[in-house]
Computed example of a mutant assay.
Amino acid sequence: MSDPGASLPPPGRPQGEGAAWGAPLVPVLAVVGTGLIGGSFAAALRRVGQAGRVLGVGRHPASLRRARDLGLIDEIADLHQAAAQADLIFLATPVGAMAPILRDLEPVLRPDTLMTDAGSTKVDVARLAQDLLGDRHVQFIPGHPIAGSEMTGPEAADPMLYHGRKIVLTPFEDTPGLLQHRLIRIWEACGARIALMTPEAHDRALAAVSHVPHFLAAAYMAQIIRAEDADTRLSLAGTGFRDFTRIAAGSAEVWRDIFLSNRAAVLRELDDFDQVLRQLRATLEGDADAATLESLLDQAALARRFWGGRSQMQ
């Protein structure tokens, strides 16, 4: 991936098509977690001139310095400094790290600051916001960008990561309409498409199409490397193996938190998958004939081709 800093405007100077519109949508942006997701968000807004000054907050000083060197952020700040200055706080951290962050932000948060997150689960994040922010939870709109990569760190940041991708927002019933509209405009400036859902519907759907696929890819990769002839197997692996296991290379910390926070929905999906796997296995064990096996494989192939063609048109 090319160096994102090479295409970014100078720090603190909005450029691009958004500059002609006057003040940027986000005069001061604070990104908590400046890796792939947070860094790409800052880069995307800067690309269109919709982020003025960008503050970087995080646990790893070296990563923050790298983000600054790449031009993803202008300044390194702590949470209190971010809360005092930011118009938008974007939480791009593992779900398990959000509780202490929200707890620290609550007493110092400005009444006009908007907050959102990029967590892959939403029921637990919404509950944390209500419990830890109290009345200020209306300033927080849970979100999940359906975009990513197995790459990590500030170097992986891509200003086009969200272009044409879907962003799920799960606002509260009492979220002010103006705040919701504001966040939608900000994401649309990144080139994203917005979907509004309840947290429960989001978590059920994402367990099926994101969380369980990663769980299975990781399990399969673990099975391969534990084999006595693992080196031989890997030396013969081709594009199918690479495509199937690609997502297993993601951050272990991030995915640990996702599986634990969405445990019930993931387990339900694994139960459903197990039933299909048993049915397929039975065709190999002689309980069904070759025609049954072919029918099951054909059903899956047709569904995948249909989905692939439809997703390319969207």
Rank of each mutant, 00 (worst) to 15 (best):
G286K: 05
D257L: 08
S295Q: 13
G238C: 11
V276F: 09
R246E: 09
W255S: 04
E253W: 04
A237N: 02
N262C: 12
L236P: 10
I258V: 14
Q279S: 06
L284P: 03
S251D: 15
A237Q: 03
Q279M: 07
T239C: 04
V266S: 00
L267N: 07
A290L: 15
A252K: 09
D257F: 01
L260S: 06
R233S: 09
I258F: 01
A265R: 04
L284F: 13
L260V: 13
D243R: 09
L296Y: 01
T239M: 06
G238Y: 11
T245E: 04
E294H: 14
A282Y: 11
E253F: 07
A237I: 01
T283N: 05
A252R: 11
A288H: 03
E269Y: 10
V266N: 00
L297R: 02
F273E: 06
A282F: 06
F241N: 00
W255F: 08
G238A: 10
L280H: 15
A290E: 15
D287C: 07
Q279T: 07
S261D: 00
I258A: 00
R233E: 05
L280F: 10
E285G: 05
A291R: 10
S235L: 12
A282L: 10
D231E: 11
D274I: 15
R256N: 06
L280I: 12
D298E: 04
D271V: 13
L297F: 12
G250S: 10
G286M: 04
G240K: 14
D287N: 10
A264P: 08
A264E: 15
V266T: 01
G286S: 06
S261T: 05
T232E: 14
V276T: 13
R278D: 14
D271Y: 06
L277W: 13
S261Y: 00
T245P: 02
G250W: 03
D272W: 04
V276Q: 07
D243P: 08
D271L: 12
D298M: 02
D257V: 09
E269V: 13
L284D: 07
L277A: 11
A249W: 11
D289L: 02
D243I: 15
D289E: 04
E285I: 01
G238S: 10
E253N: 06
Q279N: 08
G240E: 15
R256K: 10
D229R: 13
G286H: 07
R281G: 02
S235T: 13
R278P: 05
R263W: 11
D229N: 14
R242E: 05
V266F: 00
A230E: 11
L260T: 09
A282N: 15
T283A: 06
A291P: 02
A264I: 12
T292M: 03
N262L: 08
G250F: 03
R246T: 09
T232I: 12
A264L: 13
T283M: 05
L236S: 09
F244P: 02
S261I: 01
A230F: 10
W255Y: 09
A264N: 14
